[in-house]
Design a protein around this nucleic acid. Sequence first.
DNA 1: CCCAGCCTTGCGTGCCATAG
DNA 2: CTATGGCACGCAAGGCTGGG
Length: 400
Amino acid sequence: MLNIAIENGIINIDTIQKKIEMNERKKFIEKHTYSIWQGKDGKFYTYLPDEDNKRGKRLVKRTSEKAIEDEIVKFYKAKEDEPTVIQVYSNWISEKLEYGEITRQTKDKYETNFKRFFENKYLPIANRKIRYIDEEILESFIKTAISKLELTQKAYSDMRILINGIFKYAKKKHYTSLSITSFMGDLEISEKSFKKNHKSDCELVFSKDEELLIERFVMENEPTLIELGIILAFKTGLRVGEISTLSWSDVGENKIHISKTEIRYRDDNGKYVFDVQNFPKSDAGFRDVIITADTKELMRKIKMLNPFGQYIFMKNGKRIKGQAFTRRLYVICDRIGIGERSIHKARKTYATKLIDGNVPESVIKTQMGHTDIRTTLDHYYFNNKTESEMQEYIAKALSM
DNA sequence: CCCAGCCTTGCGTGCCATAG
DNA sequence: CTATGGCACGCAAGGCTGGG
């Protein structure tokens, strides 16, 4: 059983902080081989190793036992070469990067996650020596983060990846004896402790009417490239990263070939780099998306605005970034008085329409670029019907 | 679990229309 | 002619979600 500093059911962070310090302190004092004695003057004495001194040690004197212990702890702490959590973390991560086990984008992700979880203001452990992190501390660390940082399940799983990675690496290097695998196996965390981000269906897709309003709003004025790109998203279900990197050579008579996507990572100076990656999000992402007659018409309109560019969607000679589409869609939603939704919701709307339209699953999978139809059904299928439509469907079914 | 995208927000800047 | 303010986009930073 793990012990945890809990008072009235609430983890006491101060207690845990003290415990970390106590563990460190105990360790150092045990390590100290010279004895501590009280002299006739009532003061406390001990020796500390000192290579500069002829005797190889120097005598220290303090007025209290605690003060002399403080001095011992300070001394060994300064000499301490045992790594902190953050040091283990960065060694682990650079090793992984070196071996090509993770990509640059993942490193970025881990970096922000590490800051978020391990350097949080409630119970940070980044700068603690990893050897003194025991199971009790670790459990408090995890539970504090979950409750104070209001983590979702997903966020916790991100945190777990780091914890497992760091502690497995630390054990391999003999920085700690703690077995993270068995610790995690024993750790019980209630699903209830996680924050849920519940979103209703109408926040996740557009209804038929809303899509119509958007299209009308765009087409009634002089549509810009960005706006036409938004319409394209509704008509093809493409990811925004795919739209923003389309070239005319990708567009065929009846289909659009998807082979590129927008990526972002930090360069060595920490600056963000937006780039075009010559393969889509997943292998299934390579695909030919069938387009209909009205989409072809749309493509003609787009071509008139930028017929010769390297990319279809360009402004001032530069590729338009994915976020420009999302922003513009927000504004359009505001203008026509419907709830703001991102362009990715156009993809979900598209998928919902295909499913409701009884399109064969194999076709839906290809159009969406999914390897498994479950992905589409689980994450892209929502109820975007109005109440009267729903009533109609149900009435029809009941009368049969 | 590992990976890679998407989402949201703040800020800077250039453009444009309009007010002063 | 200049100040001002809205708008749209780029850049950053950090959080969330999807995919195999």
